[in-house]
């Protein structure tokens, strides 16, 4: 929050001077200058920040607040933004419903899924970036095309595929499915990072005696680390949050249910018990929020550094 580029404003007087010289000052022009004057823009941006923060944070905070109420307070008068006293009974309800299992399942699926996605997509992205072979562009096009297809669309045949392979109601099946579905986007993203690393680095490594695997491992992995971080974080969020595939693959196998399914089922049972639903929601989002708060810096940095050019 320090003044990173104070000079970015230093140029403004020059700019207005030039305009004045070139054109007679009209009333409209003066109005435009007032509107685009740094102070006016600063103020507008501050207002925007405030509105954005309220819009994006308030729902989450409200849910937290709702979940901590003593029973019945949500529907008592007067309305309170904050609980009169902290009560954890709603959380007890969620814990009794088996939230620990869901969290464990989600954690397992996420770790295995993201690990698998990286294991498959890093070598593939390397190949697309570093090899010249017939049909490379075509294959890349197909990968891009798959990225455009939401898994929701193919969920019906996916169900029969999973059933044929005997992967319904298995955690391994769900993980494999996530790897299969998320790989195209990850390859595409990672390839951009590989492309920014000069080929000379590969040549130098080869002359230094590396085979391709060693080149990837010792020389390229570090320069593309921001990309791997981005892809990792991205897929962590997607995998943790995913609902429809998990719901379809795991079916009624409740001991395998992930947090999304668990919370959904829970709210089905508790109907209008907003306090309990709020508590379940808080538990469902909290782990990822905590992880993400710690990692978002790398995420944004990686995205900015990478060549997400399209």
């Amino acid at each position: 929050m320090t003044n990173n580029e104070p000079q970015s404003d230093g140029g403004t007087p020059v700019e207005t001077d030039t305009i004045r010289q070139e054109q007679p000052t009209s009333r409209l022009r003066r109005l435009a200058e007032t509107i685009t004057a740094p102070a006016t823009v600063d103020a507008a941006v501050y207002v925007l920040y405030a509105v954005a923060v309220v819009f994006f944070v308030f729902p989450a905070l409200w849910v937290v607040s709702a979940s901590l109420r003593p029973e019945g307070e949500l529907f008592s008068y007067p309305f309170r933004l904050l609980p009169s006293e902290i009560s954890l009974t709603a959380y007890q309800q969620v814990i009794d419903a088996g939230v620990a299992t869901w969290l464990v399942n989600s954690t397992l699926v996420t770790i295995l899924g993201v690990g698998g996605i990286l294991l498959v997509s890093v070598p593939a992205a390397y190949a697309f970036s570093r090899f010249e072979f017939r049909g490379r562009r075509g294959l890349l096009g197909i990968v891009l095309l798959f990225q455009m297809i939401s898994p929701v669309i193919i969920i019906v045949p996916l169900y029969t595929v999973m059933s044929t392979l005997g992967l319904l109601r298995t955690r391994a099946g769900l993980v494999l499915l996530y790897v299969g579905i998320q790989t195209p986007f990850s390859i595409w993203l990672l390839k951009g990072y590989f492309d920014t690393v000069p080929m000379e680095l590969d040549y130098a490594a080869r002359i230094d005696g590396c085979n391709r695997l060693q080149t990837l491992r010792y020389v390229l992995l570090r320069p593309v680390a921001p990309g791997i971080a981005v892809v990792g974080i991205f897929n962590t969020v997607l995998t943790w949050s995913e609902f429809v595939l998990a719901f379809t693959v795991l079916r009624s196998e409740s001991r395998l249910h992930t947090i999304s399914i668990g919370v959904y089922k829970f709210q089905g049972q508790y109907g209008n018990d907003w306090r309990a639903i709020a508590a379940a929601s808080v538990i469902g989002m909290l782990p990822l929020v905590l992880v993400f708060l710690g990692l978002q810096r790398y995420f944004v940095k990686g995205l900015v550094e990478g060549s997400l050019k399209g």
């Binding site: 000379e200 680095l201 040549y203 490594a205 570090r222 320069p223």
Partner: peptide, 14 residues
């Protein structure tokens, strides 16, 4: 047993 120096040096950045 050759060694090569590149235009952009190609030093391993990390």
């Amino acid at each position: 047993n050759t060694a090569m120096v590149f235009q952009n040096y190609a030093l391993y950045p990390h």
